[in-house]
Nucleic acid binder design. Structure first.
Lengths: 125, 125
DNA sequence: AATTATGCTCTACAGTTGTAGAATATAGTT
DNA sequence: AACTATATTCTACAACTGTAGAGCATAATT
């Protein structure tokens, strides 16, 4: 669980989400299909982003004939946890009360807040 | 409480934090002093960032003689809440359990998690 | 009034990001 | 073997970001 993971630009992050949603190794077509829902783009655009993600160490690419397969090098859990840490430190200035307020004002309903509290309780063990 | 607030690039966000930390309207020297701790930069760099923040609608600039004074147009609370919303939606896919896990893995201690739960309880009312 | 100091705006530039067409390589087909 | 379809890599470019010097305007000083 590496805790210094750079924040990805939006488009690349979107691609990672698609990759994480699949069983690795992932074919381009699968990524494309998922992205089509959330963030449609030209195929070459996707391939550019995949190359950049590889350069940044977020995925590895293996090629089989003319096809490439993509495997995440960083787990979604680690990435989200690292971004959460950054959020708390950089945005909330490390203050949990600021964080709590942000969560409450972020549009979550009372029920959802209660649910979140329960989930935190369970994870506390 | 506007809920569509763009995410600022790091340097600009850092400047906003400094501005939010002061009583508006804020003089450049005050911002500079605070930034010196976290993110030192040339004075002209700071002024460039202030201009961009104004163009983006995050602050207003009033000038008095050759001096300028800066006032936030967007509150820190609104900004953090909006980013929190984006975090939950874009990164956690809207899943509270994913969010809870992220918080637990983000380096918070058990005590801090418990504290956060209490804060959420209080805000729930 | 002339000179100097100071605070801001303009200009600049390299690196990043979003986007995608052109070119290339390879697998499938006739 | 020649042709066609397809998957990837190269090249390109505009907008954004981080950074700061050059130039300009105005206030302070001599």
């Amino acid at each position: 669980m590496k805790n210094t993971i750079r924040r990805l630009p939006d488009a690349e992050q979107e691609v990672m989400q698609a990759i994480w949603a699949c069983q690795p190794p992932v074919a381009r077509a699968d990524i494309e299909r998922i992205l089509f829902e959330t963030h449609p783009m030209a195929m070459t655009t996707l391939l550019t982003l995949l190359t950049r993600l590889c350069e940044k160490g977020f995925i590895t690419i293996e090629k089989n004939g003319r096809r490439s397969y993509y495997t995440p090098s960083i787990s979604q859990e680690d990435y989200i946890a690292a971004q959460g840490k950054t959020f708390i430190e950089k945005l909330c200035g490390g203050s949990l009360s600021v964080l709590a307020n942000a969560l409450c004002d972020s549009g979550l309903t009372k029920d959802e807040i209660a649910q979140l509290r329960n989930l935190l309780e369970r994870d506390e063990l």
